[in-house]
Simulated scan of single mutants.
Amino acid sequence: MSAPSLAPRFDALDPNVVDNPYPEYARLRDAGPLCRIGPGSWGVTRHADVAALQHDPRLGSEFPAGYHEVSVGDGPASAFFQRIMLYRDPPDHVRLRRLMSRAFSPAVVRQLRSYVEELVDELLVPAVENGRMDLVGELAYPLPVRVVCRLMGIPPESTEEVRRHAMNLGRAFTAVVGEHARAEADVAVRWLREHIGELLDQRRARRGDDLLSRLLDAEESGDTLSHDEIVDNTVFSFFAGFETTVHMITTGAAALLGHPDQLARLRADRSLVGTAVDEFLRWDAPIQGTARYVHEPIEIGGRTVRRGRVLVLMVGSANHDERRFSRPDRLDVGRTDNPHLAFGGGAHLCLGAFLARMEGAVVFDRLARLAVFEAAGPTVRERDTPFRAYASVPVRIG
Rank of each mutant, 00 (worst) to 15 (best):
residue 239 F to Y: 13
residue 222 G to S: 04
residue 252 G to S: 11
residue 203 R to C: 05
residue 215 L to I: 04
residue 279 E to Y: 05
residue 250 T to I: 10
residue 262 Q to W: 14
residue 191 W to Q: 00
residue 221 S to G: 05
residue 172 A to Q: 03
residue 288 Q to A: 12
residue 278 D to I: 04
residue 267 R to S: 14
residue 235 V to Y: 01
residue 219 E to N: 03
residue 187 V to L: 11
residue 253 A to P: 05
residue 176 V to S: 11
residue 185 A to K: 00
residue 279 E to H: 06
residue 231 V to K: 01
residue 255 A to E: 06
residue 267 R to E: 12
residue 270 R to I: 11
residue 290 T to W: 12
residue 188 A to M: 04
residue 256 L to F: 11
residue 202 Q to S: 08
residue 215 L to T: 01
residue 225 L to F: 03
residue 277 V to W: 02
residue 184 E to R: 06
residue 281 L to C: 07
residue 281 L to S: 03
residue 176 V to F: 12
residue 172 A to N: 04
residue 201 D to T: 09
residue 283 W to C: 06
residue 170 G to S: 15
residue 288 Q to S: 14
residue 203 R to V: 05
residue 259 H to F: 11
residue 223 D to F: 10
residue 195 H to W: 08
residue 196 I to C: 03
residue 282 R to I: 00
residue 176 V to D: 09
residue 206 R to F: 09
residue 289 G to Y: 02
residue 259 H to N: 15
residue 217 D to K: 06
residue 268 A to T: 09
residue 267 R to C: 14
residue 183 A to H: 08
residue 191 W to D: 01
residue 219 E to L: 04
residue 200 L to N: 02
residue 250 T to K: 01
residue 280 F to P: 00
residue 278 D to R: 07
residue 182 R to W: 04
residue 182 R to M: 07
residue 248 M to S: 13
residue 240 A to W: 04
residue 174 T to C: 10
residue 263 L to V: 12
residue 195 H to K: 10
residue 211 L to N: 00
residue 183 A to D: 07
residue 290 T to M: 15
residue 260 P to Q: 10
